[in-house]
Computed example of a mutant assay.
Amino acid sequence: MLVDDEPLVLEGLAFMIDWEGHGFRVCGEACDGEEALDRIQELNPDLVVTDVSMPVMDGLQLIEHCTKALKASCRFVILSGHDDFASAQKALTYGVLDYWLKPIDIEEIHATLGKLHSEWSHPYGDGTAGSPPTAAPLEAAWTVPDAGDPLFDAEDQMLLAIKAEDGATIDEAAERLCRQLQLSFGGDGEAGKAFLSNVLLELLWKVMDGEVTNSAPGGEHDLSLPVLSNRADRWPDVLASFARKAAEQLARQRSVTGPAWEAARFIRERYREPLQLQTIARTLHFQPAYLGQLFKKQMGMSFLDYVHRTRVEAGRKLLRRTDLKIAEIARMVGYADPEQFAAKFKQWMDMTPSQYKNG
């Protein structure tokens, strides 16, 4: 069920997302929280995607009422604009499954739906289908069915905690992720350390995705990958410290606006398409040469480098989390030629896609 006070957003969610391809069907829509309450009781949906800022009753009030008063079995995903990230802190306590940012990222939504379909189709890991798993509100935010991948889920919750900019939630997410590392890898400290290194890199790329070099006071940055000790008992503190700095960096980035930032956001939203500086410059009403110079000054890299880096990051995540062939991933992230994808991947990651996938 979809809930948003903007008709265009509802239309976009309904028609741009391949719900049925991931085992879902849109059963209804609502334009505010109060209407959504009636529709939820009428339709009993499994999943509710709701905006935060709405008239009459906002998204968080809707989730709270459904969780505490109605005891509804449905689960929630938050849909929010840039200024609503602080709401994630409260949303976590109600077991929100994910936090989607406007404008919508189709790939991110499809990835979430695919994971939920896998988990909800076999919630007990024995091939028995059933309803979405339920749990106490706070515990539900961290509980993952056996059929899912608990490590990737813990990593996703770590990112959600960073977006919420809440220190206590970050600390808890770091502890849970490191405990899961111990459970998954047991005594294999090297494997656990390698996975955590990838997590740190994933978080760094996520935060730096919209980096503006002048966003920090004095142009200084303290966000760099930490050195991991061989002692696993020290990992939670290292991870939590890095995550707190990442949250601070995100907060600084959100305060920055301007044509370079808008161009970077355009790239992140449409990196799968052929992109040219001239096209974006016309859209933003700037001369291409001026925008290119401004982009490099503020973003710390050229327009084309930013396009390739964004595509490589998207490909890196698919290599980690799927069994798709490299040629398929190349096409999905905007490269018609897999060889070009491999070359750019090696340029940014210092290894080939095959080495990364098998490493």
Results as ranks from 00 to 15, higher is better:
Thr213Ala: 08
Trp261Gly: 04
Leu284Phe: 06
Gly292Asn: 12
Leu277His: 00
Val227Ala: 13
Pro288Leu: 04
Arg282Tyr: 09
Arg270Asn: 14
Gly219Trp: 00
Gly292Pro: 12
Asp305Asn: 12
Tyr290Trp: 14
Gly219Arg: 02
Lys296Pro: 04
Phe242Ser: 07
Ala243Asp: 08
Phe295Thr: 10
His221Thr: 09
Tyr290Ala: 15
Trp261Ile: 13
Arg254Ser: 03
Gln278Gly: 02
Gly258Val: 05
Phe266Ala: 14
Leu228Gln: 06
Leu223Trp: 01
Ile280Gln: 00
Leu239Phe: 09
Ala264Leu: 14
Val207Met: 04
Ala264Ser: 14
Phe242Ile: 06
Leu250Ser: 10
Gly219Ile: 01
Leu294Cys: 10
Leu223Gly: 00
Ser224Val: 10
Glu273Phe: 03
Arg244Gln: 11
Glu273Val: 04
Asn214Pro: 00
Lys297Ser: 15
Ser302Val: 05
Ala264Trp: 08
Glu273Pro: 02
Glu248Ser: 12
Asn214Ala: 10
Ala281Glu: 06
Ser241Cys: 07
Asp209Arg: 11
Asp305Ser: 12
Ser215Ala: 13
Phe286Cys: 13
Pro274Cys: 02
Ser241Asn: 13
Arg231Gly: 08
Met301Lys: 12
Gln293Leu: 14
Pro236Met: 02
Arg234Ala: 11
Ala216Lys: 01
Leu239Ile: 08
Asn230Trp: 04
Leu275Ile: 07
Leu250Lys: 11
Glu269Tyr: 01
Glu248Ile: 09
Gly219Asp: 02
Thr279Phe: 00
